[in-house]
Design a binder for these strands. Structure first.
Lengths: 206, 206, 206, 206
DNA sequence: GATGAATGAGTGTTCATTCAT
DNA sequence: CATGAATGAACACTCATTCAT
């Protein structure tokens, strides 16, 4: 049973973590100062250390939150039998959740390339499960003859990479593809692209 | 005419820039110290400042080098008529050049998300030309009926994103997809993926 | 109402400022290091920056203290009617206060010649009021026929210059004219010099 | 006999010294860079070291030039018997020569307060002879009954201080008292001030 | 628990000086 | 003699972390 104290503590950690994520997303991990995070959270700098070991612990905890990017349950109302709507549902969900956790995402993304243990954590806890899920799905497709023969490892990464990039770049250029307004069009286009590529489809034999 | 002085100076800048790119790629821009860069280049710290204004100028100059990622000329031996081999050639070239400039790429990638002017420079000088080239190619495909109708803006970004991600992540996991050994397979798979997607192709009507 | 916090802060600033003044007076502004100032004050270098913006802010704050050189009130017990005792009182007071603020004085004097804004600040806030006060006194003397006709601008500067120079040079040579022991003699001689010059006085007509 | 080489070398030193004096006067000794001095002299930085030991040697050599402030010969056409014109001549000459060597003067003045050996050199070689000359003159005045009894040490310093201060401050405020236009008025006023002070002179008994 | 003043190690940058050309 | 590229010691300033209140 969780006591009231523990609950209060968790809420406090949450508050700080969100403030930190916003600041990291804004300025990058290195440039962000503990002072700035404390101000953003409306507390004193020293207080942060009552809940987190150090600055890096904040980042790792933020990265930890990204496990929420892993879909808890696959859409049952659209079975893989109807590939189109299934992929579409998954993409919709992914683009939505990525948008929701964008500050967390952006907070991690800058450090990921040069911080070995952060990257390892992120790869193992977040990316690997996602890749595996996609790979599994692709393999089943191949085995059931629904998908053309291909290397699921590469294609799975290609798919994930696409979403990943839209996630971190969407607001950089003029068109914010992740804004709810344009998300539909994006999911639609990507679904078709993943399924059919760009080539003109031959008339299907009925 | 370039004097000997100027040539020597350019070579020196090159030397320093490569050293800096390696260090930035290894440790990230912020963590890298001028001392470390000087050591990597085998010179004194003060010498760097004879060739570059400050630490940031190093990073911007490195980003500048990434214009080399833009293909100078499209493969003429494989016209867009034969889409498959054309795409394949372009992908081969891109994966190769991305591998060649990887330290420069990695040096920039960590700072890009939070450094506005660096990002702007990179987007305008490197990414935009690449996206435009792909978009143009896709539009022609659609107009000539070779490609199925789609939104070239989104698909172009999806394609570029795929290459981008392999570029920065390839050596992170066990499989380095950009190593010359595996590059062929990667290019092959991506070409098919871009052209056909994952869906089982119906028998083409002869 | 001033809180305890504010009072403590002011005392801390005072402590640091006095340490800085001593170090600047000893080594000059440029040669002085923040480390040395911190040591002199018995604190850490970083602490200085909690109270002052930067090294230069220290110097400007020290210069600010020199407004204390401006006499708050003219001696009332000796009216200008009795010029001799009046001048004597003013000189006594000036030589005393100059002695009290000597470290501050010496801290500023080296930088004043080449630092435009420091000089401007010092001239406007300290020197100009002093010159104006003397000028006014001299003008009254001329108008009332107590003083011989002269250019008060020049003479006021000459008087101030004399005190100024004794202030910064007194301890340089063997004889410290500002030491309380010799201050009396100095004030006495200067008073006579200012009033009568060096020339033998003709017998006054009774 | 001085060879041609030695003469050329002396001219070169002169050239560098004047450039250094200008730069020091402009920026102060500490802020001035050897590079800037070299540029001002139109030579390479390394060349300076062929003629001077180091940066400080430049300053000491400049200070050395200030011996020119010491009057070579007292004005014979105006004997001390006619005190007024004598003092006037000396003041005229001093104000003129001080103006001529102003860059050298200003170059030294900032460092003098905190550089012991520079100050000692300046005091012994320049100021002491000047003070002694004035003291001697005053003593004679007292002995011959031309001057009223006073402490020549203090008064000599007061006089010198006045000139000194006009020398270093004249161009700081709006009125440049050392410009040839105003120098006459300044010398005139100071002469009267030194002779008679500010007090209204009683009718001289004929 | 919460605070924020104090700490001091760490870093980008400058510049007097040297020396190979 | 003259040059100016190279050197590297030195220093102002920042900021994560601690701890007395």
């Amino acid at each position: 049973m969780t006591t009231w104290r523990e609950t209060a503590r968790e809420q406090r950690k949450e508050l700080i973590l969100e403030a930190a994520a916003r600041v990291f997303a804004r300025n990058g991990f290195q440039r962000a100062t503990m002072r700035e995070i404390a101000d953003e959270a409306g507390i004193a700098t020293g207080t942060i250390y009552l809940y987190f070991d150090d600055k890096r612990d904040l980042l790792l905890s933020i990265a930890e939150q990204l496990v929420h990017l892993i879909p808890r349950e696959l859409p049952s109302h659209a079975t893989p039998d109807e590939e189109r709507s299934f992929i579409r549902c998954v993409l919709d969900e992914q683009l939505r959740v990525v948008e929701e956790y964008r500050p967390f995402f952006r907070a991690v993304v800058g450090e990921m390339w040069t911080d070995d243990s952060l990257r390892t954590q992120y790869l193992n806890r977040v990316l690997a499960p996602l890749v595996n899920t996609i790979e599994l799905f692709l393999k089943i497709g191949i085995e059931t003859g629904k998908a053309r023969p291909h290397d699921p490892q590469i294609v799975a990464r290609a798919m994930l990479g696409t979403v990943f990039l839209f996630a971190i770049t969407s607001e950089m250029e003029t068109g914010d593809y992740l804004s709810s307004a344009r998300r539909d069009a994006l999911a639609h286009e990507l679904t078709d692209f993943f399924l059919y590529g760009v080539r003109q489809q031959p008339e299907e034999v009925p």
